[in-house]
């Protein structure tokens, strides 16, 4: 068994929270630059120019890209040959979130009870998704998620007879309804298959895939391309003020499902699609 100290997990999580909120990964930056060149609407080009300027200011002056520094969504892929030393992994992750959000001047956006709604003051708890994987390492991914776009995300429990046309309609409906509320240009994460809850998780994971990459499954890669084109033809545009750039990317992940079902989840993310990873 390889030993990994709980403190090392906390330290990594704190750094990843800060890293993700102050700068975007190269794939998102190049998607923005490309859109700024290709956008058809003058107002849309102006908005995209402001978003480029915003990223520059965030990086140079240490200001979070967006004031909604999100709920900390954490993916922990834990090698089954790892022993965590000095505490429970969940406490270690939350300690990391606490440090990252306090030390990194990030906004505390979490309420402890969904109905009583008192702010926890340190952005904990994180929303943690664990998976047990082969090997002796831990891969941690922090994906801070803003709620302007999270609120516009949807799960559709379609019938098998709805088929691929039903899937397309569901995705386009979610994007249309999200409209200007979700801070377009968006990244659209789509999950197809599994069960109700697995499908939603797939959609969230789809947001982590590199913008501009394609599914390894040929029929899904083709569907991604077709849907991205149709999403952009809606004409919502940057900030929802009209234009040819409604989404930077549309990523689909799939799972086997039941003979009676065709679950589809659409997790909408704004143009600030943040994630940072580290392997311990």
């Amino acid at each position: 068994m390889r030993q990994i100290a709980a403190e090392d997990i906390s330290k990594a999580i704190a750094e990843l929270c800060i890293e993700a909120n102050y700068g975007l990964a190269p794939d998102m930056c190049s998607a923005l630059d490309k859109a700024a060149e290709q956008e058809s609407s003058p107002l849309g080009r102006k908005v995209l120019g402001q978003l480029q300027e915003n990223l520059r200011i965030a990086g140079e002056e240490d200001i979070p890209i967006c004031q909604d520094t999100g709920m900390a969504v954490v993916f922990a892929e834990v090698g089954q040959e790892v022993h965590i030393d000095g505490g429970w992994i969940e406490d270690a992750v939350n300690e990391g979130v606490r440090r990252g959000y306090v030390d990194g001047c990030l906004r505390k956006s979490v309420v402890g009870d969904p109905l009583e709604r008192v702010n926890t003051g340190d952005n904990t708890p994180a929303m943690i998704h664990y998976s047990i994987v082969p090997g002796d390492k831990i891969k941690l991914t922090v994906a801070p998620k803003g709620f302007g776009s999270e609120n516009m995300s949807r799960v559709f429990m379609l019938k098998p007879a709805d088929g691929v046309e039903g899937v397309k309609e569901a995705v386009l409906k979610a994007v249309r309804e999200a409209g200007p509320n979700a801070c377009p240009p968006m990244v659209v994460g789509v999950g197809i298959g599994g069960t109700f809850e697995k499908c939603a998780l797939l959609a969230k994971k789809a947001l982590l895939r590199e913008a501009g990459s394609r599914s390894e499954l040929p029929h899904i890669a083709a569907l991604e391309e077709e849907l991205l084109k149709e999403v952009n033809e809606i004409g919502l545009g940057p900030a929802g003020l009209g234009g040819s750039t409604t989404a930077f990317a549309l990523n689909i992940l799939t799972l086997p499902t039941h003979i009676a079902g065709l679950p589809v989840a659409v997790n909408i993310c704004c143009h600030v699609n943040r994630h940072a990873s580290r392997v311990l």
Partner: peptide, 13 residues
């Protein structure tokens, strides 16, 4: 009025 969503660093200036 709409301000540009997700441009919090720019607007802070």
């Amino acid at each position: 009025l709409a301000a540009i969503g997700g441009a919090g660093a720019l607007l802070s200036k």
